[in-house]
Design a protein around this nucleic acid. Structure first.
Lengths: 206, 206
DNA sequence: ACCCCTCTAGAACGAACGCTCTATCTAGTG
DNA sequence: CACTAGATAGAGCGTTCGTTCTAGAGGGGT
């Protein structure tokens, strides 16, 4: 039963992922849980339960086990955050204001989740990074993609290539650090300050 | 046997913690291991083994179990980083240069550990933060102390109170995020860029 | 009708987990 | 010497871990 996503009418009864294919439900559950509990803190059985899938399905789709699943979860978080970042960067004609808007958006999302959903890549990759090169490289690619979005936005606004390269680094890193502090302190302030400072820093390069 | 630190002649045979009291050895081992593997990724038995202590000793000194031990480990990492930060901030007469020096110092330490030792507080508190309020508050206090050091340094250099408050936030958060990226990318570049940008940002407030 | 391949289902394995427990050892005190 | 408190020692508790394994359900092709 339930071989195609469309026939999955009763999957994840109350979840927002109902109607999705089994594989996709597993990836989303893994991403969400690892974002909140970290790699080691999340069990495969918990993931399969949350995804309304069985252990057999998990290992069918991810024969590489927990590490492969974590890699896919990081990629999912990567795409998710990249989408939000792209939207925010395009929301304002001025790139400095756009970065500040991105910071405010991250802050609002974090608060909306009751300070539970921090950076999906960070939490997943932190403990296991040393052991599993696949996980670490997936995380590195995520950061690289996000920097690329900022970089391209700055280039389009007329910034020099070298400045855009360095600013992209600091924009992403500062957002990352501020989100972490905001999560632990349960306050939007670090992210809002970061937004203002990043805008100021970007403006100083015109 | 081995009741006082001084008589602990054969403890931790090859370790640098030899000669310390049992309690202190346990805290240091916990701090180092959780820094690298996270809270859930580190077992109590591994800590006791690494500290040349027994399980009984661990629960004797930390009857609150793993959570109490993690709280103490975070406080240890807090003091450790605060010491380094204070040294760096006092190393230059100019506060902007001092912050850049701190970033370079963090980068050098990170590379020296083969990219293994990231922020001791972050890794320990990330997964378990939601469940254990004691752990989260210890982490929040650590960040607050570090911000305080930067804040006081800026005040002493004549910055306005509000500017110093906000700059302290961003200095710590950017260092935090840049260290994370540097660790994952195995490159000092993010931290060196962060140092330059933070100096530039500080200078813009004069 | 048949096979075949994809996917679901969950019992079972050995290992490791956090923690409790009792027993022993040491140093200090009278 | 006896007594006590602090510290060490590790076997063992029940649980959960990641993973493997076999069995079966569903649908399409011939």
């Amino acid at each position: 039963m339930k071989t195609t996503p469309e026939q999955d009418h009763d999957a994840a009864a109350a979840g927002p992922d109902a109607g999705l294919g089994t594989r996709e439900r597993i990836v989303r559950a893994a991403s969400r849980l690892m974002q909140r509990q970290g790699y080691e803190g999340t069990g495969i059985k918990q993931i399969s339960r949350e995804a309304n899938a069985t252990l057999g399905s998990v290992y069918h789709f991810f024969p590489g086990g927990k590490q492969e699943l974590a890699t896919e979860a990081i990629r999912h978080g990567d795409r998710e955050f990249a989408g939000m970042l792209r939207t925010a960067l395009e929301s304002r004609p001025d790139p400095a204001e756009a970065v500040a808007a991105a910071a405010a958006l991250v802050a609002a999302d974090l608060r909306a989740s009751d300070w539970l959903d921090g950076c999906p890549v960070t939490a997943t990759s932190l403990g296991a990074a040393a052991n599993a090169p696949g996980i670490r490289s997936a995380a590195a690619e995520a950061f690289e993609r996000w920097r690329g979005l900022v970089h391209d936005r700055l280039l389009a606004a007329g910034f020099a290539a070298q400045d855009a390269h360095e600013l992209a680094h600091t924009v992403i890193n500062t957002l990352e650090g501020a989100e972490l502090t905001a999560q632990i302190a349960r306050s939007e302030e670090p992210l809002l300050i970061a937004g203002r400072h990043l805008a100021r820093l970007i403006d100083s390069y015109r």
